[in-house]
Simulated scan of single mutants.
Amino acid sequence: MDDMTPKLSLKREVGLVGAVSLIGGTMIGSGIFMSPQTVLFTIGSPGASLVVWAICGLLVILVSFCYAELGTVIRESGGEYIYILRTSGPVLAFMLIFSSVLFVRPAGVAGISLSFAQYVVAPFYSDCPPPVVLVKCVAAVAIIVLATVNCLNVRFSMSVQVFFMVVKVLALGVIIIGGLVMLIQGHTENFEDSFENTNLGINSIGIAFYQGLWSYDGWNNLNYVTEELKRPEVIGSSNLYCRPKMKTGS
């Protein structure tokens, strides 16, 4: 009778476009627009800051490949929680989710929301900094609205995610094209002695890498909704994931 009982499962409503926007739209967040100045100020030179961004990008690519492999082997939602649960047991998994739910995730969401609120209210306070209370209220409203949208309907939330991803990609495109135009016009003074005044201290390098990696954060979000993907692709040959059968008898 237990085998006949239907199991609870999530609806597979996230398609390819929604999956790409879930990763790209999250990675292209407020951190990518605010962290560059912190990286440049901390490391001290344009050349060193570009090296930091390149290394951070390479690290993110490598760990993304690892997560893609994990997502094809362990096809369950939950991200790193489910991976630690299946490989290291419930104790470590509970410690991870406990710290993530109470400290890590709320801090990250608060930082992103405050950054978003700063950009929203800035046009109304061009001559002075916006009131802190107003920024916090706008950030709180943004969190509540997005949480409500995600709770109401998966398809609608994916549509919102796709829309904002397109907007942020266009914004990045304007910045990149504008930079290239400036370079073509001969504004290359920042590349002259680009490694001068580089700070090689451990604190400076650590803070720069922290800011860079935080800007790239979001590459692991798709694995939290693995069970909601319409057609999850299996990477590589199926023989790669074959497990040896246990022998029975003597």
Rank of each mutant, 00 (worst) to 15 (best):
M1S: 11
D3K: 11
M4V: 11
P6I: 09
S9D: 02
S9V: 08
K11H: 14
K11M: 12
R12K: 13
R12I: 02
E13W: 05
V17Q: 09
I23S: 02
I23R: 00
G24L: 09
G25K: 06
G25E: 04
G29L: 01
G31F: 02
I32R: 05
F33R: 01
Q37G: 15
Q37I: 11
T38M: 13
T38R: 12
L40M: 14
F41A: 13
T42E: 12
I43C: 00
G47C: 12
G47N: 12
S49R: 12
L50R: 05
G57P: 03
L58E: 02
I61S: 12
L62R: 05
F65R: 03
Y67N: 02
E69N: 05
G71L: 03
G71T: 00
V73T: 13
E76A: 11
G79S: 08
E80Q: 14
I84N: 02
L85F: 07
R86C: 05
T87F: 07
P90I: 08
V91D: 00
A93N: 04
F94L: 15
M95W: 08
L96P: 14
L96D: 07
L96S: 11
L102W: 09
F103G: 05
V104Y: 08
R105V: 09
A110T: 15
G111M: 09
G111P: 06
S113N: 07
F116R: 10
Q118F: 02
Q118L: 10
Y119R: 03
F124K: 03
S126A: 04
S126L: 06
P130N: 01
P130T: 00
V132L: 14
V132K: 10
V138L: 14
I144Q: 07
I144K: 08
I144A: 11
V145L: 15
A147W: 00
N153M: 09
V154I: 15
V154H: 07
V154L: 14
R155K: 15
F156V: 15
F156Q: 10
S159I: 03
Q161K: 05
Q161V: 06
Q161F: 05
V162N: 13
V162H: 01
V162M: 07
F164Q: 01
F164T: 05
M165T: 15
M165S: 07
V167W: 04
K168A: 01
V169N: 08
L170Y: 01
L172R: 06
I175K: 01
I175E: 02
G179Q: 06
L180A: 10
N190K: 11
F191I: 13
E192K: 03
D193T: 09
S194I: 06
F195S: 01
E196M: 07
E196L: 12
E196K: 12
T198P: 11
T198S: 07
L200V: 15
S204E: 01
S204Q: 01
I205R: 04
G206E: 06
G212A: 02
W214I: 04
G218A: 06
N220I: 14
N221A: 07
N223K: 05
V225F: 01
V225G: 05
T226K: 04
E227Y: 12
E233F: 04
V234M: 08
I235K: 15
S238K: 10
L240E: 11
L240G: 09
C242R: 12
C242Y: 06
C242F: 06
C242M: 07
R243T: 14
P244A: 03
T248W: 10
S250K: 07
